[in-house]
């Protein structure tokens, strides 16, 4: 599995890693029971602090997408909750791609689209809610 971290993208690195692992599971690149690299190994490979990896793994464990086994590493585990969440995310991702496609057809560049999303998200801050 290949991950790519962008230190200057304005998003915490552990969130970037979480998204990429989630995406890998959704796209089938990572399957149930498969093992992720150890914290130290992945930190050295991505040249990031081990705390970044540890935080991403522990948050994903919380979401039920990963199972951390003492001494033997992190494994993909698709609990029912994670699976339904993953379907949910897949559906939402499709709506977003449709919208992006429409905007591209209207000749907006990706950079402009990205900034529009960011401006809207900033202007209408998310209500605190539990998923």
């Amino acid at each position: 599995m290949f991950f790519k971290i962008e230190p200057t993208s304005g998003q915490p690195l552990y969130l970037q890693l979480m998204q990429q692992i989630r995406h890998a599971v959704e796209s089938g690149a990572l399957r149930e029971g498969e093992q992720l690299p150890g914290i130290r190994t992945l930190a050295q490979e991505l040249v990031v602090s081990p705390n970044t990896i540890a935080k991403a793994y522990s948050e994903l464990e919380h979401e039920g997408l990963l199972e951390l086994r003492q001494g033997s590493g992190a494994f993909i585990s698709l609990s029912r909750r994670a699976r339904s969440l993953s379907n949910h995310i897949q559906a939402a991702t499709r709506s977003v791609s449709d919208l992006v496609e429409q905007l591209r057809e209207r000749d907006f560049r990706d950079e402009e689209i990205r900034r529009m999303f960011e401006a809207v998200l900033l202007h209408q801050p998310e209500m605190t809610r539990k998923r």
């Binding site: 914290i39 130290r40 050295q44 040249v47």
Partner: peptide, 9 residues
């Protein structure tokens, strides 16, 4: 950097 990461691990 790699060594610093290893030591922190």
């Amino acid at each position: 950097l790699e060594i610093l990461i290893a030591r922190c691990s």
